Simulated scan of single mutants.
Amino acid sequence: MIRVLIVDDEALVRAGLRLILDPAPDIEVVAEASNGSEASQACRRHRVDVVLMDVRMPVMDGLTAAGEIGRLPGAPKVIMLTTFDLDEYVHAALRAGAVGFLLKDTPPQELAGAVRTVAAGSAMLAPAVTKRLIEEFARTPQKSAPARAQLAALTDRETTVIRAVARGLSNHEIGRTLSMSEATVKTHVSRSLSKLGLTNRVQAAILVHDAGLLD
């Protein structure tokens, strides 16, 4: 069972999201929160697998909360929900540790699928968001010295694996490409994220891009 926390400052929005998710046999809405501070507290009180969270909220916004939640032991996966399809929010949310970014006009049938996707360990971005991110990465190649210095903590093998992660390959695909077992790939990914001080594969992809290693 995937345990979900819904976070939005509008009660009607929370009720609507609950109505969409409650019928799913493998999803349980365990709590609701009206701002980022309440969300962080709820994650401490409940065992939560996935957080569906608005960006703009009083007291503590969703981006700040995503960063705070990401530092919790056994942190849940965070999907940001917003009506604002703005690059600044996408970048900030991903850098804060969110692994999903959906617009509030996402069809109801796709919402439960997104929850399942991130719970399984994959990223989930709205198609329009993904398209623009790819276009921007292609348009603005950059090589950041701090990013390269951060990646220098990795061994050559770990660097090769993390570059494959940044290209969007799954552990199975990386193993097949590099002639490694999937378990070995998983170990390399986990160790690399720990060395880099990152919480998920999306953050790793951003770092590799910033270092100019996707060329």
Rank of each mutant, 00 (worst) to 15 (best):
L21H: 03
L21V: 09
L21F: 06
D22W: 09
D22M: 12
D22T: 14
D22Y: 06
P23C: 00
A24H: 14
A24I: 09
P25K: 08
P25V: 05
P25Y: 00
D26P: 14
I27E: 06
I27Y: 02
I27K: 07
I27F: 07
I27W: 04
E28V: 15
E28R: 15
E28W: 08
V29W: 05
V29Y: 05
V29P: 14
V29S: 10
V30E: 07
A31H: 07
A31K: 07
A31F: 05
E32G: 09
E32W: 03
A33W: 03
A33K: 07
A33C: 09
A33P: 12
S34H: 12
S34I: 12
N35H: 15
N35V: 05
N35G: 05
G36E: 04
G36P: 11
G36Y: 01
G36H: 05
S37A: 15
S37F: 13
S37Q: 15
E38M: 12
E38N: 07
E38P: 12
A39Q: 06
A39V: 10
A39M: 07
A39Y: 01
S40F: 14
S40T: 15
S40E: 15
S40Q: 14
S40C: 14
Q41M: 14
Q41C: 08
A42K: 10
A42V: 04
A42Y: 00
A42H: 00
A42I: 03
C43G: 04
R44W: 00
R44V: 09
R45F: 06
R45Y: 02
R45I: 09
R45S: 11
H46I: 06
H46L: 08
H46G: 08
H46D: 11
R47I: 11
V48S: 02
D49F: 04
D49T: 03
D49L: 07
D49Y: 01
D49G: 10
V50E: 00
V51A: 01
V51F: 04
L52T: 10
L52G: 03
M53G: 06
M53N: 01
M53R: 02
M53K: 02
D54M: 04
D54C: 06
V55G: 04
V55T: 05
V55Q: 01
R56L: 11
R56N: 11
M57S: 00
M57H: 00
M57L: 01
